[in-house]
Design a binder for these strands. Structure first.
Lengths: 175, 175
DNA sequence: CCTTACATGTAACAAGTTACATGATTAG
DNA sequence: CTAATCATGTAACTTGTTACATGTAAGG
């Protein structure tokens, strides 16, 4: 259900195509949601089938047609229902942690490489987050509460990632 | 693949049944992995089919038979292969964050309730982690590196959860 | 009496991944 | 010439969830 809800939210803010939504995921929602284009197209089509979205096909010359999706009243209802009911806790799954439980079988070189690469990814993530903050939240004092809320999520994303980085560096130092 | 790998690791440490593994997930791996019993039984059977595990059925009187699984040489190989290759980055999916992006449609009362319940869950998680630490890592100085590694993961789990708690409390205070 | 622990499964479904497929336009 | 951007999809597969199903024993 969560992907559906995320789509409802982004389309409620502004109608768009599957492709558009993918761009939004990259541009401003990197710390919130990621999905492949296949998943989006499939889910959008289903949501239309379920009456949550309308789809208007805009023909283009020399390009594939754009299918612009928009919330219906039922879609708005579905969103409100989702917001009203609390989320169930999501299961913990940390494959990286699992490797630590096989420490004695994890070759030292592979370990070093993996941790180094991992730290790099985390830092890149921080760079992405900083770019989002720049782009969307450059002066926090002027934000309305509704704009402030997404900013909070970004800040948490940053803090969590920093916590990871610190941890990786401590572990790397130790041996 | 990750569930498979987690199963290989836990069975490599000690052979056991699906039920056993479920208990281990609860007792000492709560910050690493969670899976339902259906998933476990299905996956264990497949792994046996793929030659990674052997299965010995121990008949019991008055109880369902126990199916004790154990790594084969191929299983050990598969584990080593998994350890040797770096993990791919896992996609970000934070349904809670999504709600923040629909702040203006999220009713205040529902929001308060949800955040309160969420904080409670996080605190319970911290309690669980503390219990695991007590049980498995009560005197860290005496740990060998291989025992120290899992301890690190627990510490990170705790730090991440605390970061969440702090954030939730800040957000709750703000309005 | 009711719940928890023990111990296993099947079946249907939902969600997510990987591979394959098309085809023009623009920027380097 | 190559890669990226635009824009959509199908098909097969893997992974995870939910519902249903069985049956004993021990503890409160």
């Amino acid at each position: 259900m969560s992907l559906r809800a995320v789509l409802l939210i982004t389309l409620q803010r502004e109608p768009g195509t599957g492709y558009d939504i993918l761009q939004r995921f990259k541009a401003g929602l990197a710390h919130v949601w990621q999905a492949s284009h296949q998943q989006l197209y499939r889910e959008l089509d289903r949501m239309r089938g379920d009456g949550l979205l309308t789809c208007e096909t805009l023909p283009q010359t020399e390009r594939p047609d754009r299918k612009v999706y928009q919330l219906t009243e039922a879609g708005r209802q579905a969103l409100d229902n989702w917001l009203a009911e609390p989320l169930s806790t999501s299961p913990v799954r940390q494959p990286m942690f699992a490797k630590f439980f096989a420490w004695e079988r994890w070759p030292e070189e592979a370990r070093r490489e993996e941790l180094t690469a991992f730290r790099k990814q985390l830092k890149e993530r921080l760079t992405t987050y900083a770019a989002i903050e720049q782009e969307w939240f450059s002066n926090p004092e002027t934000l309305t509460p509704a704009q402030r809320a997404p900013w909070h999520t970004l800040r948490l994303g940053q803090r969590l990632t920093k916590t990871w980085v610190e941890w990786v560096e401590e572990v790397m130092e130790e041996d």
